[in-house]
């Protein structure tokens, strides 16, 4: 016990100013798939309760980088990572870290809506049930709260026992967001969450993301420049595994430092 305490205070001494300011920090991160280097020396600080957009041409490593934060790349057989990633005060690539604990805190929404072939209710309750929560009332409350937060409650409240697969694509994606929210994470990762959806569903989800910002730190990968400029506070531009530029979204879209960034956002390449 005392050992852990001293370790913690030491950590605080060195990193205190940074720790309070940033929710997520990466330092000199390199990622390899076998011999291929997908991420090159990326360092980044992300503030709490902000929306950060990752943009860049296809294959530049946005998904790879995003999936580092909940260690979703760990299942890839020849994946290797170097460097440091800290969420709050914890190095999430330390051996001692509990993957399950990390993922409760760092939720993820995927490109294609991927509800379980279960009922709407069971989809949202899943994350709670696997934590061993048995209290029916508590589960029902949290499911309702999450569906309300995801702006889906009014559409499904009379059909909670219907299969999630009967919902439209946009509804399914909001269900996936609700499912993530039910676990009460502090960070939500979104990998092109609207790329499989129609414009109206997309607008709904963008609005939802905007509302979620007051409680969550959100990182979103997108190929849609308008989307990035509409919803994000910060934008990171990646190119061939490198972080080319990372700044306030306004700055990136009006007055980028780097020529490459400018070319990309004005559509001259990529």
């Amino acid at each position: 016990m005392t050992e852990i305490m001293t370790e913690k205070t030491e950590d605080l001494k060195i990193e205190a100013p940074i720790v309070e300011k940033y929710k997520l920090q990466t330092r000199d991160v390199n990622v390899y798939y076998g011999d291929f280097q997908a991420i090159k020396d990326v360092s980044m600080n992300i503030k709490p309760r902000s929306i950060t957009a990752f943009i860049g041409p296809s294959g530049c490593g946005k998904s790879t980088f995003l999936r580092l934060f909940n260690r979703m790349n760990d299942y890839i057989e020849d994946f290797k990572m170097e460097g440091k990633i800290k969420i709050d005060d914890n190095n999430i690539y330390k051996n001692k870290i509990q993957l399950e604990q990390l993922r409760k805190d760092v939720g993820m929404v995927f490109q294609k809506p991927n509800p379980f072939p279960k009922s709407i209710f069971e989809n949202v309750a899943y994350g709670l049930k696997i934590q061993g929560i048995k209290d029916k009332k508590l589960i029902a409350d949290r499911v309702e709260k999450a569906l309300v937060q995801a702006d889906l409650w009014n559409e499904v409240k009379d059909n909670l026992n219907k299969s999630a697969l009967t919902l439209s694509g946009g509804q399914q994606q909001r269900l996936c967001i609700a499912r993530t929210l039910a676990v009460e994470p502090s960070i939500i990762l979104m990998d092109e969450p609207t790329s499989a959806l129609d414009p109206i569903s997309t607008a709904k989800i963008e609005e939802l993301i905007h509302h979620l910002k007051k409680d969550y730190t959100i990182i979103i990968v997108t190929h849609n420049m308008q989307q990035a400029s509409r919803i994000s506070d910060y934008t990171a531009f990646f190119y061939m595994g490198e972080l080319i530029e990372f700044d306030k979204t306004k700055k990136i879209f009006t007055n980028p430092e780097k020529k490459r960034t400018e070319n990309y956002i004005t559509g001259r390449f990529g």
Binding site: M72, L99, F110, F116, Y126, G127
Partner: peptide
């Protein structure tokens, strides 16, 4: 589909839970 497993892992499920519940 792999997407279902990832969704389950992503919510903090263990391999065993993912295998038996999803």
């Amino acid at each position: 589909p792999k997407a279902l497993r990832e969704a389950s892992y992503g919510m903090g499920a263990t391999r065993l839970q993912t295998a038996f519940k999803v």
